[in-house]
């Protein structure tokens, strides 16, 4: 059965009274689920509904709207390569393809060993240091395919 850690439960309860409306706790609570599980499994929705007293439909609405919530499992390293304009002009799309090929995965797919997911994403606000990738929470900028692979190797894949 799905559950958060005791600290996670405490966090969600605190968030429920932090803002002017309890609804504002949905996004932070979903982040908490993702932090603990790596993604937001469907069972998290009834669980959070029970915990917060907010309708499942409202939680689902938020979950489905925002792209940062992983609706399916991702690798230990979630590599998001910007493919928007300034990065595309500087080889961002080729970088994403290179990484996919190297790790034998398709765009957005998790590797067989569960270690990595490579996804092409929209602008991450790092256009002056293109091309770049976001690995979990960290921005890694001014990349070449070789440099990206080296960085990922240092991070364990």
């Amino acid at each position: 059965m799905f559950s958060l850690s005791p600290e996670g439960v405490e966090f969600v309860k605190k968030e429920c009274s932090r803002y002017e409306t309890k609804h504002s706790a949905i996004i932070p609570s979903l982040y908490r689920v993702q932090k603990e599980k790596g993604w937001v499994p469907p069972e998290a929705v009834p669980y959070l509904s029970e915990l917060t007293g907010l309708p499942e439909s409202h939680i689902n609405e938020v979950l489905s709207f925002y792209t940062m919530f992983n609706k399916k499992p991702v690798g230990k390293l979630h590599v998001q390569v910007c493919a928007n304009i300034s990065c595309a002009m500087n080889g961002g799309r080729e970088l994403a393809e290179h990484l996919c090929k190297h790790f034998g995965v398709k765009d957005g797919e998790i590797s067989k060993d569960g270690k990595i997911t490579v996804s092409k994403v929209e602008c991450l606000g790092s256009c002056g240091t293109a091309p770049m990738m976001q690995v979990n929470d960290q921005f890694i900028e001014n990349l070449t395919p070789e440099l990206a692979l080296r960085k990922l190797k240092e991070m364990g894949v």
Partner: peptide
């Protein structure tokens, strides 16, 4: 306080941003 968004360009539109802080789409 800080409120962190969750990946939606539309939340840069001021009323979209208000909806987001209100805990909605």
């Amino acid at each position: 306080d800080v409120y962190a968004g969750a990946g939606a360009y539309i939340c840069g539109e001021e009323t979209g941003m208000i909806s987001s802080i209100e805990g909605l789409k």
